[in-house]
Design a protein around this nucleic acid. Structure first.
Length: 422
RNA sequence: GGAGAGAUGGCCGAGUAGGUCGAAGGCGGUCGCCUGCUAAGCGAUUACACGGGCCUAAACCUGUGUCGCGGGUUCGAAUCCCGCUCUCUCCGCCA
């Protein structure tokens, strides 16, 4: 959410920034509502002031044993008028807040201009792209042949975009989660295990609601939402709180299952682990001082890169252009891992600085010893998506005989050197 | 699921026969004084949001709202009534 006063005073600048995102949004209606709101508010407040003043007077008169019936009946009328006025104010505020909540964050000036994924810029690449003396198989074939991933029964038991992991496949999921969490904890993150269902307020706090209801699963009766990422519960951990400035930055690492409806992705990535309704992910979340957030984004991204480097998976880092960035983000780096069978890089992590956009929605502030409180800046990034890591390991470490070598760093967790058909 | 108790400022905790209560007192914080240093002591100060004064910002003054959330009664509600949420205790059930 953008600041009310900022919107009021810098409407042109905001419109220009949104235009960089490819959005043709005018703030005219918002500004008109704002003016109307202030006008009505002022009127309502004056009426209330009169009511309060006279009510005190009535109290005094009564105490003195004098009659105040006339004043009382007049105030009864005023009280009714105030009620109607409040009704009007509320309608205007709701309309204005609705617009405010639907405006995306402004891209940082360092973000390249563009309209879509093709305009993202590669920042750097790491690792040698492997060459195979045989045609590399896609991970779903490897997984099925090895008997470690079962897509068919996933579809039977649940539906399309669900799967079972089995045997060493299941152990691989668990190993990756433990490996990633251990790595991040060793770099100063505190491990958190969050709820997977959250309420509406939390989804609004991080920006999924009200705009993106269609992308999430919801528990009908209870009204809970299934989290699309641990970002939601972990960022909302401090919703409505004032953090001790001396404790910043707060760095948290959380494993969670993630649930996404993938509406609108019909026909995309229908095979394999790339786009499932449920997948595992380890997420990094930071709360920091405003002046530190862009530096924290760099280190957060580096922390995500470290996972891929430790696993020996070739990847590149791209900075998302203005047209491809997420709703709440001011700047985003995607990590893309190399998938040999497709011969392309695929997103495996997305690291974003949200500035105070989420903090304002979720009302997360900090305070130093004395002085006023201010909104923190929030950041998060995958560290990293587990399902896609499984896919990358299977494809990059496959052998001519169909077996898969286990990356060195994972062996303490897997307790085998190689995954073979059993 | 059944029975009961509760929710007040950064924290603890007063306040219910409705009327200067944004809220006593304490702790903590900040500033000043005192002190060779520390401890202790003394004085002051210490919620947030949104408006108006104000042309941009700060400071300041002023108004409105906020005592879990939402309604209601009343000229007037932290105090009375209704609904909801959450917390705690006991019983039952359960991984």
């Amino acid at each position: 959410m953008l600041d009310l006063k900022f919107l009021r005073q810098n409407a042109a600048q905001v419109q220009a920034a949104l235009a960089r995102r490819g959005l043709d949004i005018t703030l005219d209606e918002f500004l008109q509502l704002d003016e109307k709101r202030r006008r009505l508010l002022f009127e309502a407040e004056q009426m209330k002031n009169r009511l309060n003043t006279v009510s005190l007077e009535i109290g005094r008169l009564k105490k003195a044993g004098r009659d105040a019936g006339d004043l009382q009946s007049r105030m009864r009328e005023l009280s009714q008028e105030i009620k109607e006025m409040d009704e009007q104010v509320r309608a205007v505020v709701d309309a204005q807040t609705g617009i405010q909540l639907s405006l995306p964050n402004l891209p940082d000036e360092s973000v390249p201009l563009g309209t879509g994924a093709e305009d993202n810029l590669t920042v750097r690449a790491w690792g040698a792209i492997p060459s195979f003396p045989f045609p590399p198989k896609p991970h779903w074939e490897l997984g099925e042949d090895l008997g470690i991933i079962d897509f068919e029964r996933g579809a039977k038991v649940s539906g399309a975009r669900f799967s079972f992991a089995r045997g060493l496949g299941a152990r691989l999921e668990r190993a990756l989660i433990n490996f990633m969490l251990d790595l991040h904890v060793s770099r100063g993150y505190t491990e958190v295990f969050p709820p997977f269902l959250v309420n509406r307020e939390s989804m609004t706090g991080t920006g999924q609601l009200p705009k993106f209801a269609g992308e999430m699963f919801r528990v009908e009766d209870a009204g809970y939402y299934l989290i699309p990422t641990a970002e939601v519960p972990v960022t909302n951990l401090y919703r409505g709180e004032v953090l001790d400035g001396a404790r910043l930055p707060v760095k948290l690492a959380a494993y969670s299952a993630c649930f996404r409806a993938e509406a609108g992705a019909a026909g995309k990535d229908t095979r394999g682990l790339i786009r499932q309704h449920q997948f595992n992910k380890v997420e990094l979340v930071k709360f920091c001082r405003p002046e530190d957030s862009f530096e924290e984004l760099e280190t957060l991204t580096a922390d995500a890169c470290r996972v891929l480097e430790s696993l020996g998976l070739p990847y590149r880092v791209v900075v998302l252009c203005t047209g491809d960035m997420g709703f709440a983000s001011a700047k985003t780096y995607d990590l893309e891992v190399w998938l040999p069978a497709a011969g392309t890089y695929r997103e495996i992590s997305s690291c974003s600085n949200f500035g105070d956009f989420q903090a304002r929605r979720a009302n997360i502030r900090y305070r130093d010893g004395r002085g006023k409180s201010a909104y923190v800046h929030t950041l998060n990034g995958s560290g990293v998506a587990v399902g896609r890591t499984v896919a990358a390991i299977l494809e990059n470490y496959q052998q001519a005989d169909g077996s898969v070598v286990v990356p060195e760093a994972l062996r303490p967790f897997m307790r085998v050197d190689r995954i073979e058909k059993s």
